[in-house]
Structures are given as C-alpha cells and as structure tokens.
C-alpha cells in the first residue's frame, strides 16, 4: 500500500506543483500547498483509487480543495523545510516573456472559463476529465472551452 501511494505521489508531484504555480500569484507558496496535498493523500491513502487515471483525478480534487482553503486564508499550513522548499521551486521555470502575456490573457477570462482553460491547456486534463473535476456536464465544458478559445484568440491576436 505505502509503496503504491509513494509511486502515485511521485508520478503526479510535478503536475500538482504546476497546478499550484499556475494559479498562485506567489509561486513560492506552491511547495507548501503541494506538501499539504501529500499529507492529505497519505492520511487518506485508503481512499486513493487503484486506477491510475482516477488516482490522478482524485489528487487534483484534493489540490483544488487545498487551494480553496489557502485562498480563504483558513488552510492549515505545514511549513516545509526551507531547503526542501527551495529544492522544489528550483525545478520550475515560468516563461518570462510570451508566457506573461498568455497568463494575463487567461486571468482576464471569466473565472469559469479561465479555470477550464488552465485544466485543459496547462494541467493536461481532457475536456471530459476537466468537466468531471469541475462538476459540470461535458457538453457544457465543450461549449465553455470553445468560448474561452475564442476570447483568447482575440486578446492574443490569434485566429481560432
């Protein structure tokens, strides 16, 4: 059991770290939130789905709640060792040029469209998985994503 949990966390750790960095204004906070996800996952390891795809979605669900708690300012923070925090954040690179404009364009979308875009374009979820993650019908996700792409195309001067 413990080896499987370790394998799943290690395999998904990079994506989960990216999940937080792509949504936080201060990327330095991402390792602590990743630590919270790992702690919760270990405490609830018996709930971790056996299927790899479902386990990934389960972890993304935990990450979403951790992020929501963090934004409400009520999340219990586990301060990671400073060395480990630096080690984690040193593995991350955010494009400082074109990427800044793209991130701004995504941020400028209506929140429902922005989050859907992050899930599909940045976190690697399919539209169906993103719909499940957000608790909306897949058809709604498809129409929202088309709308998001259209708006992004305009703001980034790209034909969609």
């Amino acid at each position: 059991m413990t080896d499987r949990v370790a394998d799943v966390l290690t395999a998904q750790g990079g994506r989960l770290l990216g999940f937080f960095i792509n949504r936080l204004e201060n990327a330095d906070e991402a390792p602590d939130l990743l630590g919270d996800v790992f702690l919760i996952a270990w405490r609830r390891r018996r709930d971790l789905p056996a299927d790899a795809d479902q386990a990934r979605m389960w972890l993304f669900g935990v990450a979403r709640k951790v992020l929501a708690n963090h934004r409400r300012g009520k999340g219990r923070r586990q301060a990671l060792d400073a060395r480990l925090r630096e080690h984690l954040i040193a593995c991350v690179e955010v494009d400082q040029f074109d990427g800044v404009a793209v991130r701004a364009a995504v941020r400028s979308l209506p929140p429902r469209l922005a989050e859907l875009t992050r899930l599909v374009a940045w976190d690697g979820l399919t539209l169906e998985e993103a719909a499940r993650h957000l608790g909306i019908p897949a058809s709604t996700a498809r129409s929202r994503y088309a709308r998001a792409r259209s708006l992004l195309g305009i703001s980034l001067a790209i034909r969609t």
């Binding site: 290690t10 792509n22 991350v92 940045w122 992004l152």
Partner: peptide, 19 residues
C-alpha cells in the same frame, strides 16, 4: 502560445525533492 503560459517542471531535478 497557451503552453508558454504554464510553468515548466524539470521532472528529473524534481524527483529527489519529491522523494
């Protein structure tokens, strides 16, 4: 272009920290 907005993670360097 959308992909340029996401954080890129060096998975090789990340592995020891994740362990």
């Amino acid at each position: 272009r959308l992909r340029t907005g996401t954080a890129r993670i060096d998975e090789t360097r990340l592995r020891p920290a994740l362990d």
